[in-house]
């Protein structure tokens, strides 16, 4: 702990979760989802969060991604205390710092692959031409440049997830969060997606935090952390 603290100013962890509690209220009942979590994720890490259903792993991921707020404690990502940002500051922060990969891809059905990838760039000041170029580059990285004009329904599950990954990286965020990225894919597609994520981590230096049930997926990660009933197990 003290060694890590000493390292912080120079190259501190890109994600620093400190004493985080997350409590949901349902009527009078309090449900403690996360209870005193401390996690430090160094820059360039590929971390797998594992645990049974209801263990709080998705909640932890959501806190790190800045789409949820802790009840107490601090979540510091890329130097920003996420919990202190206003709703609109947080939205802007997410668009620059976090890339999302979802289990069900969550592509917009009425937009083409290229337009889906371009979406996060609409929040930047890039020109239309620059946006198109960057979206196409991202599609090239995931090997789907030839599918740019296709709509999601014209793509296979594996292809959809690759488009979603292109969308996650197009704005060049430091952190990628993935919630069961292979959960809806067949074994072969899952293998391809994991290989792609490994390459993003290795070749592009993206820090990846992935929630998964799949032990094969978790094997690809450098580090595995297990959650159980809202507490991290070693």
């Amino acid at each position: 702990m003290s060694a890590e603290a000493a390292r912080q100013p120079a190259a501190g962890p890109i994600v620093d979760v400190r004493n985080v509690r997350k409590v949901y209220r349902r009527d009078a009942e309090e449900i403690v989802v996360l209870n005193g979590i401390n996690v430090q994720v160094p820059n360039g890490e590929f971390l797998a969060l594992m645990g049974p259903s209801g263990s709080g792993k998705t909640t932890l991921l959501n806190l790190i991604a800045g789409i949820d707020r802790p009840t107490s404690g601090e979540v510091i990502v890329a130097g920003t205390d996420v919990g202190r940002l206003s709703e609109s500051e947080l939205a802007r922060w997410r668009s620059h710092n976090v890339g999302f990969i979802f289990q069900f891809y969550n592509l917009i059905p009425v937009l083409t692959a290229l337009e889906n990838v371009e979406l996060p760039l609409l929040l930047t000041s890039l020109s239309k031409k620059e946006r198109r170029e960057r979206a196409l580059t991202a599609l090239k990285v995931v090997g789907l440049a030839d599918r740019a004009g296709h709509y999601p329904r014209q793509l296979s599950g594996g292809q959809e997830q690759r488009v979603a990954i292109a969308r996650a990286i197009v704005a060049d965020p430091g952190v990628l969060v993935a919630d069961e990225p292979t959960g809806d894919l067949d074994a072969k597609s899952a293998e391809e997606i994991l290989a792609l994520m490994e390459s993003l981590n290795r070749d592009f230096g993206k820090t990846i935090i992935m929630v998964t049930h799949d032990p094969r997926a978790a094997e690809k990660a450098h580090t595995q952390k297990h959650l159980e009933k809202g507490v991290l197990k070693a």
Partner: peptide
């Protein structure tokens, strides 16, 4: 939810 996560404001 997806659009909001991507950073589109309310």
């Amino acid at each position: 939810g997806t659009l909001r996560a991507l950073g589109f404001s309310r």
